[in-house]
Design a protein around this nucleic acid. Sequence first.
DNA 1: CATAGAACCTGTATGC
DNA 2: TGCATACAGGTTCTAT
Length: 307
Amino acid sequence: MPELPEVETVRDGLERHVVGRTVRAVEVRRPYSVRRHLAGPDDLAGRLAGRTLTAAARRGKFLWLPLDHPGAAGVPPDDALLAHLGMSGQLLVRGTADDVEQGGAHTHLRVRLLLDDGGALDFVDQRTFGHLSVVDLLPTPDARPGGAGSALPLVPAPVAHIARDLLDPAVDREAVARAIRRRRTQIKRAVLDQGVVSGVGNIYADEGLWRARVHPATPTADLDQATALRVLDGVAGVMTDALAQGGTSFDALYVNVNGASGYFDRSLAVYGQAGEPCPRCGTPVVREPFMNRSSHFCPVCQPAPAG
DNA sequence: CATAGAACCTGTATGC
DNA sequence: TGCATACAGGTTCTAT
């Protein structure tokens, strides 16, 4: 469910409400939710107990909370609590004893970090596509020439193959546009490929392509540089607008770190708007199957590619 | 290596 | 009411 604006909203909330606090204990209620932590739930709990969360970072839809060094001597590997929200994940901060008590009864509570100040950080996830793990941070070159930087960014090993996202100050949009045009696929598939550019999901792909007036099935080989950049600008623009409003939300499935829903869904032009008039030309929006999901577009503003 | 499709899990909405 | 099917915002693994 959450795409970049939602995950960034959560990251911002964690930065302001959780960073600096220390984990006292961990409850793993659903081992499947920590399946990516190969050493198992007990190891995860052991590596978190007593550690202080020192920052909140993000790339694309992955977010992580770097941990302090317990021993302080020597140079232990940097590590972090890594989270992916999947389709339905939430990270909820419980501040008071009452909040902790009530949150503990939540049907979809999967993992709980009890904090030493009496609060808790809850990982709630209905569909369980999301996951938590504790992983090493490694200096990592960009998977693709999507951005240039003097120093290598420190990212979790499982994030090494994820390209920079469009809100990353170091992203190189011209290079991303060239990478897209090098692919031999359809534009929507390329925009959704997290190894090309990260953070984009089904909603913002459809909305960005509508803004750019490009049909989702357009072959990438047919795009000139200016058109590819227009798509990136469209996607970045809609994500920036969504972020300003705290992310998109359809229902109680998504809430930000404090439990407040976003409301960007009220300004979606085509996503979920099948049959409704295109805000630009009035033509009914079309929905068609795409990779076990749907694509939404205006058949007039976004003409289908020839053939 | 690049690309397309299946698989992973839970829940709601819809139709018969 | 009961049951089957479609669909949901993502990523990884496997096959080609």
